[in-house]
Amino acid sequence: MSGPASRAEKRELGVELLANLEHEELSLAAAIDRIETVTTSPSLTREILDTAEKRGVIERENARLRVQRSGTYVNYDSQVVTRDGEFECKRCGASVTTGHFVRLDAGELGPFGSSCVRKVTGRESD
Rank of each mutant, 00 (worst) to 15 (best):
E24S: 12
V74M: 06
G3R: 13
F112N: 03
V57K: 06
V81K: 14
V96L: 04
A30Y: 04
S2C: 00
L44C: 02
T97C: 02
C92F: 04
E86R: 11
L65R: 03
R11S: 06
M1D: 12
L28F: 11
L65K: 04
S27G: 11
G122V: 04
A52I: 07
G93E: 04
T98E: 15
R118H: 12
R123C: 00
L13V: 01
T40Y: 08
E22K: 09
R7N: 12
L18F: 02
V102A: 07
V81A: 12
S78D: 11
R91T: 01
R66A: 13
D77L: 09
V120C: 07
T98K: 14
L28C: 10
Q68S: 13
E12R: 14
A63R: 14
D33S: 14
T97G: 13
K90I: 00
T40G: 13
E25T: 13
R69A: 14
T98V: 15
G113W: 07
V96R: 01
D77R: 13
L17Q: 08
T121A: 09
C116N: 02
S27D: 05
F101M: 06
L26A: 11
S2D: 09
K54S: 14
A31E: 15
F112A: 02
T51G: 01
Q79V: 02
L21I: 07
G113K: 02
I58W: 00
V74P: 08
S6N: 12
L109K: 08
D33V: 01
S27A: 07
R34V: 09
V102Q: 05
T37M: 04
D126V: 08
G113Q: 02
T40N: 12
A31P: 02
F112S: 10
E124I: 02
V80P: 08
T98M: 12
H100V: 02
L104R: 03
L13K: 11
V120E: 03
T37C: 13
V96D: 05
A63I: 10
L44H: 05
L28G: 08
S95D: 15
V57N: 07
K90V: 02
R46L: 14
E24T: 00
I35D: 08
A8V: 09
I35L: 14
V102L: 06
L109M: 11
E24H: 03
P111W: 06
V74D: 11
E47K: 09
Q68H: 11
S115I: 06
G93Y: 03
T121H: 00
S2K: 08
E86T: 11
D105V: 05
R83W: 06
E24W: 00
T98R: 15
F87Y: 15
E86M: 06
D33Y: 08
R83D: 11
E9N: 02
V80N: 03
I35A: 10
N75L: 04
H100T: 03
G99L: 07
S114H: 11
G110L: 04
R123P: 00
E86D: 15
L104C: 04
I48C: 12
E25G: 04
T72F: 11
A8N: 15
E24G: 13
A30S: 14
S125N: 11
A5G: 14
